[in-house]
Structures are given as C-alpha cells and as structure tokens.
C-alpha cells in the first residue's frame, strides 16, 4: 500500500514537500513574525511587545521614528555609502585582477584561482581579525603608513600614528578585503568566456590596447560587473561583524543598529521596523541582480 503510494507519487511529494515545509516553518514564518512585530507596541512584559488588546493593532510609531530620529537616517546613509565604497573599490581592484587571470597560462591560472578562493574557505572572523592586528596604532603596518604620511606632507601635519581603527575607512577596507573574491570570481567567469578574436580584430583595425579594452572588453563584461557588484553590495550593506570590530561606534551601520535595538534596548518592534526598512532598501539591488542572473543563465543554456 505505502510502497504503491511511494512509487506513484509519494516520492515526488516528499522531494518537494519536505524542504518546502521546512523553509515555510523555519524561514518564512519567522520572517512574517518580524514583519508583524514591526507594527506591534513595545511593552515591559516578557516577551517585550504587545499586539492588539489594550495596545493598538497596527502601531506605526516605529516607522515614524525611522524618519524623525536622525540616528536611523544616519545609519542608513553610512551603510549605503560604506557598501557602495566597498563595491567600487572591489571593482577597481578586482577587474584588473580578473582580467589578469585570463591572461596567465592554464596551469598557473588554476593555482591562482585557488589562491583567490582559499581565503574564502578560511574563517571570515579571522580574516577581519588579521586586519585588526595590522591597523592598530603600534603595528608595523601602521608605522609604515605613518612614516610614508610624515614623509609626504609638510611637517606641520605630522602625526604620531595614522588613526585607522574604529573608522568608516577601516570598515570599507576590511569589507573590500573580505568580499573581493565575490567580485573577482563572477568577473573572471564572464571575461573568460569572451571571444579573444574580437580583441584581435579590433587590434588589427588599429585600435590601441586601451581603446580595445574600453570599446570591446568592457561593454561585454557588464553582466559580470553587475553580478560581482551586487554580490559585494548586498552583504556589505547589512554587515554586522566588521563594523562591530573595526568600525566607529558613534556612527554605526544599520546592522549594528538592529542588533543594539534588539539586544541592548530590548525594543523588538523598533528593531523589526529597522529590519523591514533595510529589506525594502535592498529590494532594488536584489532585483537587478536576479534579473541579470536569470538572463546569464538563459544565455548559458542556449549556448
């Protein structure tokens, strides 16, 4: 009986149903609770929120505070500018690296690609930590930077050490460091597929190397640039670990604000409202990314 059910349709129901139900319970339901929570009212009960009863059913106070309290606006601006800065720097460093990878010969290329991926497999936290060691005011790296700075600028601007730690610059730098592979890999995959005869044709027609790059290579690599850019921007905007460890705590990023509202201030409805606002902001980049991904996949399948 069960065997017959299993062979007829049971197995396919299970293959679809089990992961479906799992994600509905452990991903969608918690998410919907957070969305609902953003309309709740903060109370001093445990758990610290009220919903209906003596409290209003829909309380928009959290969303109103997003626009009236400068803390939230500043945090959003800091997050978006840091993420955008990291994305642009990743592109400026990652593009020549990806292009360079397509120019080295096969045997070396596999080794170098592995070296790009290797840091990704090692601990994220420890890669951030490695920079904490470099940026501290007594480190050799900071001394080198300080020396270079004092040598370059007039004596009046001399500093004892470069204030790297606990700044937005440090956050962007470490983000570039940790997310650079996300930029290089899609770019490399894109650039590797380009037809080299197009370059040669342009060259034969007398174009200089830079003109070949600008008019032939660059336009064809836009899908790679967008995929890499979004893969850096999306996680960077919601980053929590990096700003907590090397960031400026007086100008927090939005991830830190959500976490603080929730844990320290115990204002769950506010934390939920900020989280929903962050997601709404991320919808644009996410849609750009998935549209380009779908198009790239469709092209791959047609090839």
């Amino acid at each position: 009986m069960i065997a017959r059910w299993f062979h007829r349709r049971g197995w396919s129901d299970l293959v679809i149903g089990l992961p479906y139900v799992w994600l509905l319970i452990f991903f969608l339901l918690p998410f919907l609770i957070v969305v609902g929570m953003s309309f709740a009212t903060r109370t001093s009960t445990a758990p610290p929120f009220g919903f209906g009863g003596e409290n209003p059913l829909v309380n928009l106070a959290g969303y109103a505070r997003l626009f009236s309290d400068t803390l939230y606006i500043r945090a959003f601006v800091t997050s978006l500018t840091n993420a955008a800065g990291a994305m642009v720097l990743c592109l400026l460093i990652g593009y020549p690296m990806a292009l360079g990878l397509t120019r080295v010969d096969r045997g070396w290329r596999n080794i170098l690609l592995m070296l790009v991926i290797l840091p990704f497999w090692t601990s994220f936290l420890l890669r951030v930590y490695a920079w904490m060691g470099l940026m501290g005011s007594n480190s050799w790296f900071n001394k080198v930077l300080t020396g270079a700075w004092n040598w370059l600028v007039p004596q009046a601007w001399d500093v004892a050490n470069v204030p790297l730690m606990h700044s937005n610059f440090a956050v962007v730098l470490v983000m570039v460091y940790t997310y650079l592979p996300f930029m290089i890999l899609p770019l490399y995959a894109n650039l590797e597929r380009l037809d080299p005869t197009l370059d040669e044709a342009a060259m034969d027609l007398g174009a200089r190397p830079f003109a070949v790059f600008r008019d032939v290579t660059l336009p064809q690599s836009i899908p790679g640039i967008i995929a890499g850019g979004m893969l850096v921007f999306i996680p960077a905007a919601g980053e929590l670990v990096i700003p907590t460890l090397v960031g400026d705590s007086s100008a927090p990023m939005i991830g830190r604000v959500i976490s603080d509202e929730f844990s320290s201030a115990r204002d769950w409805p506010m934390a939920a409202a900020v989280a929903v606002a962050l997601l709404i902001l991320m919808v644009g980049p996410m849609m750009i990314y998935s549209r380009f991904e779908a198009r790239a996949q469709a092209r791959e399948r047609s090839e």
Partner: peptide, 20 residues
C-alpha cells in the same frame, strides 16, 4: 524561499530565528 536566505542580511535571519 530558496533564494531569499541567500541574500537576507544575517542580522535579520538571526533576529527572526531568535524571536521565533
């Protein structure tokens, strides 16, 4: 549901799981 957790900021996934 299969793509959303890939791009959901970890803070939000963490907090929503905790509340749940």
């Amino acid at each position: 549901l299969v793509t959303a957790p890939l791009i959901m900021p970890e803070v939000i996934t963490g907090i929503s799981s905790l509340i749940f």
